[in-house]
Design a protein around this nucleic acid. Structure first.
Lengths: 135, 135, 135, 135
DNA sequence: GTGGTCTAGACCACG
DNA sequence: GTGGTCTAGACCACA
């Protein structure tokens, strides 16, 4: 594991998983949660590669996926920018959320767990967290 | 995708994902939900491989993982059997559940969704399902 | 995408495609369709660059291509002018048209479509347009 | 330019254009025109790379696009196969056709040509072709 | 400076 | 054997 910050975006890289997926996911998260604003520039391929000590091709691959998702746009000679359309970002967020929720429900079914039990477990888990935070 | 049944266990195989993982997960599910009883025999590697039209090595790998999880035991000359210990099955179930739940919570955080919203969404989803099931 | 007008010529710039090509094509179109008359002056490199908020080098490159095509001429100290020869414009128009038509025919072949079907499709498309235009 | 055949699919490679796009387009064409049948295997990444004397990564990139288009599926350890769904192929064909037709109409408009003239030109072009073929 | 394409070659997971 | 990931380094088009 490895924690780094490049141009105000923080990355944690784990070399046992595909690097391009981790970069992809972490930039996605940052966009979707508004940590990178609409229309903002993200680091250039080379800059991020330098900052994370990885190969530019690996970063490029992540960036191509981001663009395919409609979350970013390239401007020739200027770099890569987050889309200015909050609609797109929101649509993407909801699409991913639905998919992950359905997968999760399926998993719980496969384990023979009822939603009532799972819900209660998570409720308590998050309550405990709240109690223990910033005392 | 492909739906098949071998010795009373049903499998759906998707050739675009690791086959051994799918077999592993589907047998795990069947055990954990009691579809295969404690102490019961599961198909031999060869039988399952023939039934699913896949390579025996692939089935073998799934079986090795099951044994490492403590969910099955080999008996020389007789085949592979589900453990007789309900404790083990239960412990395994809880371990997997916790892991999947924590992963899910992490995902929802990454999307900037609050647990309240997610909970409400799933609550409604499952309510609708109940009302609308094919009678 | 971006819609702007400079010296009576309207431009739409899409930053994900080569800017110089877009400028080139849009000025070509304007000349070929007579929106800029024979012998007329077109904006200076600097003026157009300022108007479109892009680099003068980029505009320059487009202008060089226009001159190579024989569609424009530079006059020292006065600026760039559309050729006065309607022959040249016409020749250029036909050359480009032929090239684009042949490319299109090739594409339709590659899709396994017959010219009869394509023709019928376009015929109908344009008929509908006529009937349904925003009145 | 370079004309080669690999596993019954013929390729013409022009080193002045992106190789992966050419491979992509040529396999797409072959699928869409039925030269490669539904469910059929296409050459492995390495085999095609060897056959065309190019790098496997370049072929892989083309194959990833094909899969994104829904025209092919990978089967682990077995290779890459054309989808068995004629629906998908047809949908893809129509989508691409529409896009190319609309682009073409736009181009003709930009040249100030009427559809009547263009249609007549192509009609004649294809008639001439017919006359000159296999006499 | 930006991104895009390509190569050669390594190592991995899977079947 | 299959595809997938990653690197290092080259060369190109564009702004």
């Amino acid at each position: 594991m490895d924690q780094k910050e490049v141009s105000g975006i923080s990355f944690q890289i784990d070399f046992s998983q595909p690097l391009y997926e981790q970069i992809l996911n972490q930039i996605r998260s940052a966009i979707v949660r508004g940590e990178i604003g609409l229309g903002e520039k993200i680091p250039s391929v080379r800059e991020l590669a330098r900052g994370l000590h990885i190969n530019p091709n690996t970063v490029m691959r992540a960036y191509q996926e981001l663009e395919r998702d409609g979350l970013t746009e390239k401007r020739r000679g200027q770099g890569t920018f987050v889309t200015s359309s909050s609609k797109r970002v929101e649509a993407f967020r909801m699409e991913v959320a639905k998919e992950q929720i359905h997968t999760f429900i399926e998993q719980m079914k496969n384990l023979g767990l009822t939603w009532e039990n799972v819900r209660a477990y998570i409720d308590q888990l998050l309550d405990d967290d709240k109690g223990g935070e910033n005392p």
